[in-house]
Amino acid sequence: MRKVLGVLLGLVLVGLLAFGASVPKIALILATGGLGDRSFNDQSYWGAERAAKELAERYGVPVEQIFSYVEPRSIADYEGYQREFARTGEYTIIVCIGFDQAPVLEEVAPDYPDQKFVVIDAVAAADNVASVVFNDWEEAFLCGVVAGLWTKTNKVGMLGGMDIPLIRRFYQGFSQGARWANPAIKPEDVLVRYVGAWNNPVLGKELSLEMYQAGADVIYGAAGKSHLGVFAAAEENPGVWWAMGTDVDQAWSTPEHADVIIASGLKRVDLAVYTEIMKAVEGTWQPGVIVYGMVSESRIGTGIAVGKEDAFPPYVVASYSLVDIPNWIVEKVVEAAKGILEGTIVIEHE
């Protein structure tokens, strides 16, 4: 009986395809940091892969038939990849990851008016582009709260990928959160260093060691693959130097460093990528700007992973960290999250 049902299902699928129910195709153009950052790019891939697996099961085809991705080595590669995918006319949606793809996409997208594009972390002004942005300063503020309460030196730091508005907003949120939680921390006590690249963990480690040696005992990473160097630096003095991840619970994505990662900011890039893909497939996709964050129409997309239990989901959720974070710190983070949601805490940012 099962064999008969299987054959019938196969015939139905073949019939659907024959009458025009074509298999959707997804293209993903990653940011220059590439896969392996266990954060921003990897999350983007996970979101697209999740959609591809669901669609592959739905249509009875291999994932590889639905999902294609590329890892540009430099910004100069973006235009070629965007045009290469678009000119085929085969892709239901082309997902472009990273703020620096937006200016290129503004030039490319109008040349392919029937092609749907998505850009993550920036706004591209074109009629066939959905631009997804996040309130990054919210996750950074919550990380600052944890850092401000955990520090023993009243000095903390942040490692940024590049000195650009996107990353400066992380720093602004982190600094305000640390000082909100711990008035003993002054603006000059929140150190920052910029790597100048998203894929240089060696330099990321050097700059992190510089901040640790300058007195910071907690460093927050917002530098893509480069901030893996923060974790490596903290491992040189475990129990004294601590680290914080971003975008995903990096105690989970980098379990080898779960002994020094006390918390991680959350930015649901995976959810955004998955959602835009499925909207395109289901026929509900629309161009325009989509904002994810606590203070947004969506009310989702940013938060923090800290402590052993979900304290205020989806904003304050459990982490895989091996470090015991006292309940009073988690409670203060929940207080901050509620303050952001209710508007009693307003995070200043450029």
Rank of each mutant, 00 (worst) to 15 (best):
L142G: 05
I185R: 02
L207Q: 04
G6T: 13
A181P: 11
S44C: 11
A76N: 14
E276A: 03
F40I: 00
F312N: 00
L166V: 15
A337G: 08
W242Y: 15
I75Y: 07
K338P: 07
E350G: 12
A76L: 14
D100I: 08
L5R: 11
A223S: 11
K155Y: 04
K3D: 11
K3T: 14
R169F: 02
R58G: 01
V190F: 01
Y194A: 00
S321I: 13
I167L: 10
L341R: 10
A51R: 10
S253T: 15
G10A: 13
E49H: 09
A233P: 12
D259W: 09
A184Q: 15
Y78G: 04
I75W: 04
F19E: 10
D247K: 11
E210N: 13
L271K: 13
D100K: 09
K338T: 01
Y45N: 05
G196F: 13
M278E: 10
I329M: 11
S44Y: 07
S44Q: 09
I304Q: 08
G6E: 12
V119K: 02
L5P: 03
G303Q: 12
I329L: 10
L207G: 02
V218Y: 08
S298F: 13
V132Q: 05
W137I: 00
Y81F: 11
L142D: 06
D121F: 04
Y112G: 02
F312K: 00
Y315H: 09
G173L: 02
L149V: 08
G339R: 03
A222F: 08
E282K: 13
D163T: 15
F174L: 08
G60C: 01
V289Y: 02
D114T: 03
E84W: 10
Y315E: 03
I325K: 09
V145T: 07
Y78R: 12
L9I: 10
W285K: 04
I262F: 06
D270L: 02
E297G: 09
T151W: 07
I347Q: 12
G6I: 14
Y171L: 05
D249G: 03
Y194L: 00
P24R: 04
V202E: 15
G36N: 02
L203A: 08
G196N: 08
A251P: 11
Y69F: 15
I219G: 06
L35R: 15
H349N: 14
D37R: 07
A76D: 15
I167V: 15
A223T: 06
L142K: 08
P183W: 07
D114Q: 12
V218N: 05
I261C: 05
L11W: 15
G148T: 06
S226Y: 10
L105F: 09
E350C: 04
M1I: 14
A305Q: 09
V123S: 01
E297C: 00
